[in-house]
Every structure is written in C-alpha cells, then in structure tokens.
Amino acid sequence: MSILDEIVDRTRDDVKRRRKAVPPEQLRARLKDRGDDRPFAEALASRPGVSVIAEHKRRAPSAEHELRTGSTVEEVVAAYQRAGATALSVLTDEPFFGGELTDLAKARGASDLPIIRKDFIVHPYQVLETAVSGADALLLIVAALEDKDLAKLYRKAREYDLDVLVEVHDGEELERALEVVDADVIGINNRDLRDLSIDLNRTFELLSHVPAGKVVVSESGISRREEIEELERVGVDAVLVGSHFMRQDDIEAACRELAAL
C-alpha cells in the first residue's frame, strides 16, 4: 500500500465519523453565513509573472518533526500577505499533516487573500465542509479518485462557487483532468504521492501538453527564485510552496524572496 492509499483510506474513515457528529443538513444551514467571495483562480491568472500560493503546513509525512513550532496560523498567513503572496493554501489533513479544519477560519480572519483548502477530498461532505469553513477553493487529486468521483466532486465544488485546483503528476492523470472535468486550474505536483520522490522536471515535461488558456500551478520542491524564473519562462502561472517557507526562521523574508518583492 502506498502512502497515498493509506491516507485516502484513513480519510474515508474520518469523514464517516465527522458526518455522524455533524450531519450534512447542519452544515448546509451554515452556507448562508459564508463571507464574500475571494476568487482564487482569477487572482492567479490576473497577476503579472508567477504568483506565489503560500501554504500553512504543520507537518509532512516525509518529516519526523513539525516543520515549524511557536507560530500561529494567523501569524503565518499575515506574514505571507505582507510578503506579497497572491493566495494562501491551508493544509487541513490532521492524521498525516497535523492540520485542522478550523485553520481555514483562522486564516480567513487574518488575511484577505483567497484561500484554498488543501486536503485529500474524496467525499461530497468534504466539499460542503470547505464551503462553510472559510475557503474559496479546494484541491482534487486525480491519483486519489476514480473518474466518476472526480467529476462528481468537481461539479459539487462549482455548485458551491468554489474554485478547483485539479492536481496531476503524470501524463495519464493530466489527460484525465482534461477529459473528465476540463479543469480550468491544473496543478502539476512535482512530488509523487506514491513514494514521496520529488522531480521538478515533471512540470517542464507536462506543461507542453496543457492546452492554452489553463492556469498552471507548479507544486512541491520549489525553494529558489531561480527556479521560479525558469518556470515563468516556460509559462507557469503560479507556484505552491509550503515546506520551504514553514522551515524558515523568517517566514516573511523567505516568501518575499520568492515573490520577488
């Protein structure tokens, strides 16, 4: 069993428990209290150069310890905004990444940037959670979903006016993302979620197969301004950076360096 299989199985069990604790109808009643829209995809596409999606991430399966201690969600996302990030990513998976769903509301209260919920979304209940918890977009990982589930979850997200970052890491997954949902925002993950290896060349290899007009995000393994400049040269619209920022003593300076402010 790969790490992705393990995470998805655990996620399905966790969703069952959460649905019993808070039934869907209770969540739907909270939809009326959603705040103003902060268009995620539009923010990435409208900024000149490469946008930085800065991530709050406590832990990673490949790390033995927390990536950062002593900083609150609010402090981290406020630093990202001051540093020139275009959008925020908030990792809410708890068992493997130490995140919490409540981190979304905390981030929204501390910043006016659009927020994507980064998690392993496998059930429509999670889409509803996302809509009522302060996010403007969510992540769908093609490797974790059958085509019918990918289509259903994408459609449900759009019903709730959530933007969707559809993540792929090889040519077959890219083909599915385009054929099944015609994704507007495509994330190319340089990390293989099956074995956690990282290869930045994945972005360069897949980019030429992405149709014109799509917003392309390069994810994972990015830590230097030179890498972002090369990604900009080939037409990448945004990068998602988490672990690199969260490990830095001065998180604002690290983000500012990559955002070129």
Score class of each variant (00 low, 15 high):
2 S>P: 14
6 E>V: 13
7 I>P: 08
8 V>I: 15
11 T>I: 06
17 R>N: 14
19 R>T: 01
20 K>I: 05
20 K>S: 07
22 V>A: 04
28 R>W: 07
29 A>H: 12
30 R>F: 06
33 D>C: 08
34 R>G: 00
34 R>F: 14
38 R>H: 11
38 R>T: 09
39 P>V: 04
43 A>V: 02
45 A>H: 06
45 A>K: 03
46 S>A: 06
46 S>N: 05
47 R>F: 01
48 P>S: 08
48 P>N: 07
49 G>N: 02
50 V>K: 00
50 V>C: 00
51 S>E: 03
52 V>Y: 01
57 K>N: 09
59 R>D: 04
60 A>T: 15
61 P>Q: 13
61 P>E: 15
62 S>D: 11
65 H>A: 08
69 T>M: 03
72 T>A: 06
72 T>M: 03
72 T>K: 07
73 V>I: 13
74 E>K: 14
74 E>S: 14
75 E>P: 13
77 V>T: 08
86 T>C: 01
88 L>A: 04
90 V>R: 05
92 T>G: 09
92 T>Q: 06
92 T>C: 07
96 F>W: 15
99 G>F: 01
99 G>H: 04
101 L>W: 13
101 L>I: 14
104 L>M: 11
104 L>E: 05
105 A>K: 15
105 A>L: 15
106 K>P: 05
107 A>C: 13
108 R>W: 03
108 R>E: 01
110 A>Q: 04
110 A>I: 02
112 D>T: 06
112 D>R: 10
114 P>D: 00
120 F>G: 08
120 F>K: 13
123 H>R: 09
128 L>I: 10
130 T>P: 07
131 A>K: 06
133 S>H: 07
134 G>A: 05
135 A>Y: 01
137 A>M: 12
137 A>G: 12
138 L>P: 15
139 L>I: 14
142 V>N: 10
142 V>S: 09
144 A>P: 08
144 A>W: 14
145 L>G: 03
150 L>D: 00
150 L>P: 03
150 L>T: 06
151 A>C: 07
151 A>Y: 05
153 L>G: 00
155 R>P: 10
156 K>H: 03
156 K>E: 07
157 A>T: 11
164 V>K: 00
166 V>K: 08
168 V>K: 11
171 G>R: 13
178 L>W: 02
178 L>T: 06
179 E>S: 12
180 V>I: 11
181 V>Q: 02
182 D>W: 03
183 A>T: 07
184 D>I: 02
188 I>P: 07
189 N>C: 06
189 N>Y: 02
190 N>V: 12
191 R>C: 10
193 L>A: 12
194 R>I: 05
194 R>Y: 03
195 D>S: 14
196 L>A: 11
205 E>H: 14
206 L>P: 04
206 L>I: 05
208 S>Y: 00
210 V>I: 12
214 K>G: 01
214 K>N: 02
214 K>R: 09
215 V>D: 01
216 V>E: 02
216 V>F: 09
218 S>D: 06
219 E>C: 07
220 S>F: 04
223 S>H: 08
225 R>Q: 09
227 E>Q: 15
230 E>S: 13
232 E>Q: 14
233 R>M: 04
235 G>T: 12
235 G>W: 09
235 G>I: 13
236 V>M: 10
247 R>K: 14
251 I>N: 04
251 I>F: 10
254 A>Y: 10
256 R>G: 07
258 L>M: 10
259 A>L: 11
261 L>E: 00
